[in-house]
Simulated scan of single mutants.
Amino acid sequence: MKIVDMLETTYDYPIQQSKQKNPDKKWKELISSSFEKHEGRYGYHWIHTRRDT
């Protein structure tokens, strides 16, 4: 039964991507913790400044 007019590969791609290991997991955790520590006032500029040090 065809429910949606969509190619199977188009449907499968996001599912496959979500199963892969995230290479930036460490960075995401560090940025999230810094953002929460500063109560949401930790912007793009400071993230990049801290990342480069």
Results as ranks from 00 to 15, higher is better:
Glu8Cys: 02
Gly40Cys: 06
Ile15Leu: 13
Thr49Glu: 15
Ile47Arg: 04
Glu36Thr: 05
Ile3Tyr: 09
Asp24Lys: 08
His38Ala: 09
Ser33Asp: 13
Lys26Pro: 02
Ser33Glu: 15
Tyr44Val: 11
Asp5Phe: 00
Lys25Cys: 03
Ser18Ile: 05
Ser18Ala: 15
Pro14Gly: 04
Trp46Tyr: 10
Thr9Ala: 15
Val4Tyr: 12
His45Ser: 07
Lys2Gln: 13
Ser34Leu: 14
Phe35Arg: 05
Ser32Thr: 13
Arg41Cys: 03
Phe35Met: 07
Asn22Phe: 01
Asp12Ala: 14
Gln20Gly: 02
Ile47Gly: 01
Val4Gly: 03
Ser33Arg: 10
Trp46His: 11
Thr53Ser: 10
Gln17Glu: 15
Trp27Phe: 06
Tyr11Met: 07
Thr9Pro: 00
Ser32Tyr: 05
Asp5Leu: 11
His48Asp: 13
Ile15Ser: 04
Lys37Leu: 08
Pro14Gln: 10
Ile31Cys: 07
Gly43His: 08
Tyr42Gly: 00
Ile3Asn: 06
Pro14Glu: 09
Gly40Phe: 02
Tyr11Pro: 01
Phe35Lys: 07
Asp5Gly: 08
Lys25Pro: 00
Glu39Val: 01
Asp12Thr: 05
Tyr13Gly: 01
Arg50Tyr: 04
His38Gly: 02
Glu36Ser: 11
Gln17Val: 14
Gln20Cys: 07
Tyr44Trp: 05
Tyr11Asp: 06
Phe35Ser: 09
Lys19Ile: 01
Lys25Glu: 14
Thr49Tyr: 07
Gln17Lys: 14
Lys21Asn: 11
Tyr44Ile: 10
Glu36Lys: 07
Trp27Lys: 13
Asp5Ile: 04
Lys2Ser: 11
Lys25Ser: 15
His45Thr: 08
His48Phe: 13
Thr53Trp: 10
Thr9Met: 13
Ile15Gln: 11
Gln16Arg: 08
Pro14Ala: 05
Val4Ala: 08
Glu29Tyr: 01
Gln20Asp: 12
Asp5Ala: 09
Ile31Gly: 02
Pro14His: 10
Leu30Ser: 11
Gly43Arg: 06
Ile31Pro: 02
His45Lys: 11
Gly43Met: 09
Ser32Cys: 03
Tyr42Glu: 04
Ser34Ile: 00
Arg41Lys: 15
His48Gly: 03
Arg51Gly: 03
Lys28Gln: 15
Ile31His: 05
Ile3Val: 03
